[in-house]
C-alpha cells in the first residue's frame, strides 16, 4: 500500500501518525504517574491498564510511521526533545486531581473513538487495520471514564466543584485536537484520514450533551488553536523524567 502514496501524501501521513502516536504516549505517561497513587486500589489497577493500552496504541502508530520513514519507535520516543514532539498540550498538562485525570481521559477517549470509527474506512489499508484493532480496546476506556465523569459531576459538592474546575481548565485545550496540520487537507481529500472539522462537530455533539446532563457548565473560553509544534513548559519536564533511563543507558547495559 505504501508504494501507492506519492511523496507528498507519504510525508503528510507520517506527520499525522506522529501526532497520533505522540498524543497517546504522553497521555499514557501522565496516566502512569498514578500507579501506586490512585484514590482506591481498583482505580490504581484501572488507570495502569489505561496507560498501558495508550502506550500500546502509540507503538502501533509509531510502527506504521516507521514503515514510511524508517524511524525506530524507541529512538523516536526517547531521543527527541520537546520541540520535535507533536502531541497536543492537553495531554502534557500535569496529572492534577482524579477529576481532572478522568475528564481529560474522557475528552480524549471520545475523540479517539470517533476518530477510529472513521479510520476503519481509511483508503490506506494499514491505517484501517490498525484502527479496527484499537477500536475494540477503546470501548473499555470510554465506558470507564464516562462513568467517572458522570459520577463525580453528580456526586458531592466537592466532587462537582473539582470536575467543573477540571472542565474550565481543559475545555480550551481540547480544541487543539482538531487543529489541522499542513498535510491534513490532502490526507482528507485522499480518504486516508478524516476531515478534522467534521470530527470536531461529531465530538462536540457527543461531549456537550453528556457534560450538560452531568450538570457541568461548558466554559466560554477562547479555544486553543495553535499548531502541534507549540508546547507548554510541562512537556520538557515530563520528557526529562520519561527519557532519563534510556539516555543514561550505555550500550553495554542489559536488562
Amino acid at each position: 500500500m505504501t508504494g501507492q502514496l506519492d511523496a507528498q501524501l507519504q510525508q503528510a501521513l507520517a506527520d499525522r501518525l506522529l501526532a497520533l502516536a505522540d498524543d497517546e504516549v504522553i497521555l499514557g505517561h501522565r496516566d502512569a504517574e498514578w500507579t501506586g497513587h490512585a484514590p482506591i486500589l481498583e482505580e490504581d489497577i484501572a488507570i495502569a491498564n489505561l496507560a498501558q493500552d495508550e502506550i500500546g496504541h502509540a507503538l502501533i502508530w509509531y510502527q506504521l510511521r516507521e514503515d514510511l520513514t524508517g524511524r525506530d519507535p524507541d529512538e523516536t520516543v526517547y531521543f527527541r526533545d520537546a520541540s520535535a514532539y507533536r502531541n497536543v498540550q492537553m495531554v502534557e498538562l500535569p496529572k492534577g486531581d482524579w477529576a481532572f485525570t478522568m475528564l481529560r481521559q474522557y475528552l480524549f477517549d471520545v475523540y479517539e473513538r470517533l476518530l477510529l470509527d472513521r479510520l476503519v474506512a481509511s483508503t490506506h489499508a494499514p491505517l484501517a487495520e490498525a484502527a479496527a484493532k484499537i477500536r475494540r480496546e477503546e470501548i473499555y476506556h470510554y465506558r470507564h471514564t464516562s462513568t467517572w465523569v458522570e459520577r463525580l459531576a453528580l456526586g458531592t459538592e466537592e466532587s462537582h466543584r473539582r470536575m467543573q474546575d477540571g472542565l474550565d481548565r481543559l475545555w480550551p485545550f481540547a480544541a487543539q485536537l482538531f487543529v489541522a496540520g499542513p498535510g491534513d487537507g490532502a490526507l482528507a481529500a485522499a480518504g486516508i484520514f478524516p476531515d478534522l472539522s467534521e470530527l470536531q462537530q461529531a465530538w462536540e455533539a457527543t461531549v456537550r450533551p453528556f457534560l450538560e446532563q452531568a450538570e457541568l457548565t461548558i466554559p466560554q473560553a477562547e479555544p486553543l488553536t495553535v499548531g502541534r509544534e507549540r508546547h507548554t513548559h510541562w512537556l520538557p519536564i515530563l520528557l526529562g523524567e520519561m527519557q532519563v533511563v534510556a539516555r543514561v543507558e550505555t550500550p553495554e547495559t542489559a536488562w
Binding site: I45, A48, L50, Q52, D53, Y140
Partner: peptide, 13 residues
C-alpha cells in the same frame, strides 16, 4: 464485577 480492569490487560475482576 468489581473492576473491568485487572492484573493484566486481558482480565477483569
Amino acid at each position: 464485577v468489581t473492576n473491568t480492569f485487572g492484573s493484566t490487560l486481558c482480565r477483569a475482576i
